[in-house]
Structures are given as C-alpha cells and as structure tokens.
C-alpha cells in the first residue's frame, strides 16, 4: 500500500467542503481526514449531508467550495485518477439479479479493466474472504440481504482500491450479517485500506476508529467513539423496576430545571448536571419501587445533546 498524501498519511482529506442544491444546502463547511488503515464513521440521520460528501469524495459531484482529495489527488479535477484507487459502494448498489455471484464479479472486473492475468486470483481471493465461495453459482437475486451486501462489497473491491467509501452498507441488514460485514471491513483496514463508512445508526459508531457526527451539513463532533461519548457533559441516571410508571409520573409532575427524562421500554434515563441533582432525583423517587444506577453515556446521548444545544462551535475533544 503506498503511503498517501505525503507526510500526513491521510488517504482521504476534505477541507471546507460546501454544496447546495438550489435553495437547499446539503454540506456547509466540512473538514475530514481518514488515514490508511483506519475506519472513519460518518454518522448522522438522513439528510445530514453524508451521501453528498461521499459523492464529492468519489468525484461524482462537484463541490461549490472546498476540496476533496483522495491519495493527494483532487476528486473534482481528476475524477478518473481518483476512481482508479477508490471503491465506492452507494446505498443502492446495482447487482445484476439474473447473473450469478461469479458472473457479477466478472462483470465488474471487466468494467474496471482488471487484467485477465489477475482476474482469477482476485476472484478467488474475494470469494474466500467474503465467504461467498459456496454460493458462487447462485443468482444474485436469490441471495439474502447480508450476502448481497457482501457481494456488492466484493464488486467494489475488484480493482484492489486503496480507499473505500461505503454509503450506509448495513441499512436493512440483520445484526448477524452486520457483524460479519464489519468483520470484513476491519480486515480490510488491517490490510491498510482507508475506509469511510456512513451509517444512521449510532450503535455502529463503536466499530469505527474515529467518527464524525454529522447534522445539517456540519460536523457537530469528532474523535474516537469513546472521546465523542465522553464529550457528553452531563450525568445519566438509569431508573429501573416495577415502579417505573410511578417514577415517570413523579418526575413529570415535578420538572426540575436542567433535568430531562427519556423513556425507554423498561427504564428511564434521567439526564442531569451534578451530584446535588442526582441526590434530588433519588429523594423524589425514594419509595417509588425503582432502582437507580448511574450509567455511562453513549454516542446517541452525545448526539442528542449536541443537536439540541444552542448553535456554536464543533465539539472536538
């Protein structure tokens, strides 16, 4: 794997990226860097600007301002050169349902001009590591959702790219297949690829080396998953037990400044600021038939807090 982007080691580098579609601004000033061997998660809801960012990085869309570089090359100026070293898996990757697994791979090998001498070895390698070997004669249309995603990924990898851009690859895939898919992504990073992966699901953040939380075209936080979760500046108390409805009624009836209650199926999360408030919540709920435990905040807690915080600078731990 040749070291990209000179000394900095960033295989993907995005600076000051902006893009509007008419009146609607999709990306408003985004910076991003992904080094070889790392998985960066672009995490945010639909409409946050994830797909636009990825399409600009892949040279499919020109930014209004800013620059995206892949292995040191400007994606807007040299899209072909960039695409030679980059694999892009869009949200709806087009496999040919009537072609078999092996035929789909061969088709993409043709498309990317993989030399005949390399093709057989490359196919065998991809079958092996995607564990699709036993299904090579099955039509793509008859694969499960998880296997389709693995085949799409294999097609994306056919030309041995050094940079992978995957747009919500696990949407609609069950947890077992998702684990398998992430295992493969981790293996690719281990071979030195730089991976940018988008997901609307906060629980996938923990699988990335670093994450960028995106909301309305901006990065609202970035860092390792632990750093981002730790940026949640407040305390969380989990409330569990048979008296949950009573506890919810008590907390709703006596709202306290700065104390927020989030309901989950069989428990509550009480967000608050300090030890005095912890004690007060405990006092209010004494005798309600519930247990209280402090819990560590997750990425989602941080995301909600940052989204609802007054507009300001990006949180960079």
């Amino acid at each position: 794997m040749n070291a990209a982007d000179g000394m900095s080691g960033a295989a993907i580098r995005v600076e000051g990226l902006r893009k509007s579609y008419g009146e609607r601004t999709a990306v408003r000033g985004l910076d991003l860097a992904v080094a070889s061997g790392r998985i960066c998660g672009l995490i945010g809801p639909d409409g946050a600007g994830k797909t636009t960012t990825m399409r600009i990085i892949c040279g499919l869309l020109r930014p209004d301002a800013g620059v995206a570089r892949v292995l040191g090359r400007d994606s807007a100026r040299e899209p072909r050169a960039v695409r030679e070293h980059l694999g892009y898996m869009p949200q709806r990757f087009s496999l040919y349902p009537d072609l078999t697994v092996a035929e789909n791979l061969r088709f993409f090998a043709d498309l990317f001009g993989v030399p005949a001498s390399e093709r057989v070895r490359r196919e065998a390698e991809l079958m092996e590591f995607s564990r699709l070997g036993p299904f090579r004669k099955r039509r793509a249309g008859q694969l499960s959702g998880g296997m389709k995603q693995k085949l799409a990924l294999s097609c994306t990898l056919i030309h041995t790219p050094e940079v992978l851009v995957l747009d919500e690859p696990t949407t609609g895939v069950d947890p077992v297949s998702r684990r398998e898919f992430w295992r493969i992504l981790r293996e690719l990073a281990g071979r030195g690829l730089a991976l940018l992966v988008s997901t609307p699901y906060m629980d996938e953040a923990g699988l990335c080396d670093e994450v960028v939380l995106m909301h309305e075209g901006r990065a609202i936080a970035r860092g390792t998953p632990d750093e981002v979760a730790a940026a949640f500046p407040r305390r969380l108390l989990e409330v569990r037990g048979a008296g949950l409805p009573a506890a919810l009624a008590i907390l709703t009836a006596s709202p306290r400044r700065g104390v927020k209650v989030h309901r989950y199926g069989d428990r509550l999360h009480v967000v608050h600021d300090d030890a005095a408030q912890t004690a007060e919540v405990a006092r209010l709920l004494a005798g309600a038939g519930v247990e209280l435990h402090p819990v560590a905040p997750g990425i989602e807690d941080a995301f909600v807090e940052l989204m609802t915080a007054p507009a300001g600078g990006e949180a960079t731990p």
Partner: peptide, 28 residues
C-alpha cells in the same frame, strides 16, 4: 433489525430458526 429500536420496547422476543429462544424485558 436495529437493536437500538429494541431498547424502546417493554418486552422483546428473539427468534432463531423458527422458534422463540428468549423472551423478556430488555433489562432482563
């Protein structure tokens, strides 16, 4: 398929090969 949605349920069941293998509250 998303387990963070499952966290919002009062009870959940998990099915494997046509059978329910577990049924309880998320905390349980």
């Amino acid at each position: 398929h998303y387990m963070d949605e499952a966290e919002y349920c009062g009870r959940v069941s998990i099915m494997v090969q046509g059978r329910i293998v577990a049924l309880d509250t998320p905390s349980g």
